[in-house]
Simulated assay, not measured.
Amino acid sequence: MNSLKFSQDFYRYFGRECKNKDILKVIFNHELRFNYFFRKYQNSNNKFLKLFYKIFIRQIRLKYGIEISPNTKIGKGFYVGHPFDITINPNVILGENVNIHKGVTIGQENRGERKGTPIISNKVWIGVNSTIVGRIKIGNNVLIAPNTYVNRDIPDNSIVVGNPCKIIENIEATKDYINNIV
């Protein structure tokens, strides 16, 4: 039906392989619709098709407030839960099996020692209304609690809460939060 990365995104939502009959799920599921056109744009070498996909991404952006550039680097298994008012800087790098929820901002810091954008590793769950800024690295298996402000490096296997953020070591940080891992 489509690209490998989209099939892996689909698996994150439903826990099964994407088949041609699933096109209705893509059309009527606004989270998947964004992923579908995002992946199609990234995998196309045809300028006309890229423009076509970009128009759909723009429509979704305007309707749901998903500000994610089609050029953003996002690994397989991307999951957008409640896709409203999400802003991600185009220079951000997202790893595999990342969950993002409504109100999340991942942005750039414009001055100081952390001038730049975040790199987010694999198996990261980012809760509602969280903000991540600056040239920082978020490790693997990290849960960022809702309403958390992150502007420093976060080690692997951590839960992050609050503002300023507090880091709690936890080997099972994302257990039962990130399902259907690809």
Results as ranks from 00 to 15, higher is better:
residue 83 P to D: 09
residue 109 E to T: 09
residue 52 F to M: 07
residue 75 G to H: 09
residue 130 S to Q: 12
residue 137 K to D: 03
residue 118 P to D: 09
residue 79 Y to Q: 06
residue 147 N to H: 14
residue 150 V to L: 10
residue 119 I to S: 04
residue 77 G to H: 10
residue 134 G to E: 13
residue 59 Q to T: 01
residue 38 F to M: 04
residue 69 S to F: 12
residue 68 I to T: 02
residue 174 T to C: 14
residue 150 V to Y: 04
residue 126 I to S: 06
residue 38 F to Q: 04
residue 99 N to W: 12
residue 130 S to N: 11
residue 136 I to P: 10
residue 167 I to K: 08
residue 90 P to M: 02
residue 105 T to Q: 10
residue 152 R to A: 06
residue 134 G to W: 07
residue 149 Y to P: 00
residue 99 N to S: 11
residue 84 F to E: 12
residue 97 N to R: 04
residue 81 G to N: 14
residue 163 N to H: 15
residue 175 K to L: 13
residue 159 I to N: 03
residue 70 P to V: 01
residue 164 P to M: 11
residue 152 R to Y: 04
residue 173 A to V: 06
residue 109 E to P: 00
residue 66 I to N: 05
residue 177 Y to W: 15
residue 50 K to P: 02
residue 167 I to Q: 11
residue 68 I to Y: 09
residue 168 I to A: 02
residue 141 N to A: 02
residue 37 F to T: 00
residue 159 I to K: 14
residue 103 G to Q: 13
residue 169 E to D: 08
residue 118 P to I: 04
residue 68 I to Q: 06
residue 111 R to N: 09
residue 60 I to S: 03
residue 122 N to H: 12
residue 45 N to P: 01
residue 39 R to M: 04
residue 150 V to I: 08
residue 70 P to C: 06
residue 143 L to I: 01
residue 172 E to D: 15
residue 47 K to T: 08
residue 141 N to M: 12
residue 155 P to C: 10
residue 113 E to K: 12
residue 85 D to T: 00
residue 152 R to M: 09
residue 46 N to R: 05
residue 105 T to C: 13
residue 75 G to W: 11
residue 171 I to P: 08
residue 167 I to D: 13
residue 118 P to W: 11
residue 115 K to P: 00
residue 115 K to W: 02
